[in-house]
Nucleic acid binder design. Sequence first.
DNA 1: AGCCAGGAAGAAT
DNA 2: ATTCTTCATGGC
Length: 268
Amino acid sequence: MTEFEIPKTPYFDLTATLECGQVFRFTRDEDCCVIKAGRHIARVYELEDSYRVVCDDKDFFWRYFDFDTDYALVQSKVSDEAQVAEAIEFGKGIHILRQDPAETIFSFLISQNNNIPRIKSIIERLSDGLGEDMGDYRAFPTVEAMAGAGKAYFLSIGAGYRADYLDKTANALLEADLDEWAALDTDSLRARLMSLHGVGRKVADCILLFGFSRFDVFPVDTWIKKVFESAYPGMPADKMSVLLVEKYGKYAGFVQQWLFYYKREKKV
DNA sequence: AGCCAGGAAGAAT
DNA sequence: ATTCTTCATGGC
């Protein structure tokens, strides 16, 4: 165990970062938040003027929380967009986490046509059943463990029709080199991801954003569609995503996340 | 009780 | 190339 502190600024808010829908393996204790990521765990305590991160690997979580990105700078680049300004103000403290690619693939396979509380519970059962025993918690299952589990197991933990997606994708990933995938440009990588059974445009874009730190993407789900339904009436999600990437460029992913969080929390 | 959820695949048109 | 249907499950 090790620990480090980061000072509180307007540009990092733990609750917003965890609750904005990008990550599912976290819980809120009385005095701290517990975050399980891959085969790591952190407990984050909110103090008067700082957050104290108690974890098993400082370098891992420093990168995971993306503390090296200048979010004030990012926000200054898009704050002139009137439509976005309010959402930024509300979600000012969101950081885009740098999550494990395989974990992100499986997590967002489960996320489709599903609600967040249920997504969390399915992923927790998955980890409890297939993840390596790390002592007081379990790691997220490896690709090998996922590939060996079988469709019936995924059904038994309540994955529903996604059980087949998990089974086929896990077995496909056995033959893939995700480090190699990470070197591809965004469009090529999206194509690879969409070749996986159960991964369409929206899930692929979430994986690109949260698992491969690609910010030139704009996942369009049911909430984002509501945000833009008046601007682009009747437009299919995939086409809407293309237009929004053109509009926001290399900051698209950040803008998407601010708008998603704002829409879900404020319900406006 | 019924609608909906960070959608995608397969079929029909 | 577009639109329609179906797919498990459970949160609210």
